[in-house]
């Protein structure tokens, strides 16, 4: 089989942790968009889901920081954060070690990814799963792209990584779903938290929806940092998904800057059925 679903979504901890501080219409409309994404995901009948996330020092630190890492465990746990702070209870999430191993082996043909048999999910994965697989019954393959501790992998390598993930999905019999989670412009965990560059975000999403490789890669980290904050480095996860879409275009279902969530909240999916 191959990729049966692909999409991108926001993962900021405030989405669940600071829901009560948000304007009710902001929270409700975004939650509804997430629920619709779950409906589409379930309709694709996946056997497993790859989650390309940008983790935040839950597993990886600057003593030995992989640019890319793919999980290969029987199961995972999370969230690592205080459940009350994040608004998500700790749980066990099923893995799929055999499928992981196939995916990793295939990706290694193109990109030197690390792998891990232990992985504590942080909000980067736990927030999306809270909405998309609330029963935690879909096996997950976690993936990390280092977007936190520079030096960071170049954008064109994130594209190559996403393309390698797609090639890996094409080589297995299972029905695989893929999501990328991250933020676009944002300045999380700084005094600027809540600042969002909507114009920059909409321009990036227009490039993503059109799966315009040249324009998606036409950023430098200096410009990202200046215009989109250090949180903008996470566009690597969205770029990897675009590459995995193999030319298919996307649909933007939701975008709204929600300062108390500290990010422009985004839900978009790939038009795989049309383009495949």
């Amino acid at each position: 089989m191959s990729l049966v679903f692909a999409g991108i979504c926001s993962h900021a901890p405030g989405i669940t942790g600071r829901k009560k501080m948000a304007d009710p219409d902001d929270a409700t409309s975004f939650y509804n968009a997430y629920h619709q994404m779950r409906d589409a995901l379930e309709a694709s009948k996946p056997d497993a889901m790859i989650v390309i996330a940008a983790e935040h020092f839950a597993n990886f630190f600057m003593n030995n920081m992989p640019a890319y890492c793919i999980g290969m465990a029987d199961s995972y746990s999370g969230p690592i954060e205080d459940p009350e702070w994040l608004g998500i209870q700790r749980t066990t999430i099923p893995g799929t070690p055999q499928l992981s191993r196939h995916i990793i082996q295939s990706v290694l043909q193109q990109v030197d990814t690390a792998y891990a048999e232990e992985w504590l999910f942080d909000h980067g994965i736990s927030v999306p799963l809270h909405f998309l697989t609330p029963r935690y019954d879909l096996p997950i393959i976690p993936v990390n792209i280092n977007c936190q501790g520079p030096p960071l992998t170049p954008l064109h390598r994130s594209w190559a990584f996403g393309a390698a993930v797609r090639q890996a999905c094409d080589s297995v019999p299972q029905r695989v779903a893929l999501i990328g989670t991250g933020g676009i412009s944002h300045w999380p965990a700084t005094p600027d938290s809540g600042k969002i560059n909507e114009q920059w975000d909409r321009d990036f999403l227009e490039r993503w929806v059109n799966n315009d490789r040249e324009r998606l890669l036409d950023y430098s980290d200096e410009h990202i940092y200046h215009d989109a904050g250090q949180g903008g480095f996470e566009i690597r996860t969205f770029i990897a998904v675009a590459a995995a879409m193999k030319g298919a275009k996307g649909t933007l279902h939701y975008y709204r800057p929600i300062p108390i969530f500290a990010v422009g909240c985004t839900i978009a999916t790939a038009n795989l059925a049309i383009e495949a």
């Binding site: 405030g14 501080m21 935040h56 205080d82 999380p188 965990a189 700084t190 250090q230």
Partner: peptide, 25 residues
């Protein structure tokens, strides 16, 4: 300190979100 590390230490020390932002300001 990277904010993704600091915000959790702040929470561990009992800082509420607005208090944490204010401390940095």
């Amino acid at each position: 300190v990277n904010g993704q590390i600091l915000m959790h230490f702040a929470a561990m020390c009992g800082y509420e979100w607005p208090q944490y932002i204010q401390a940095m300001r």
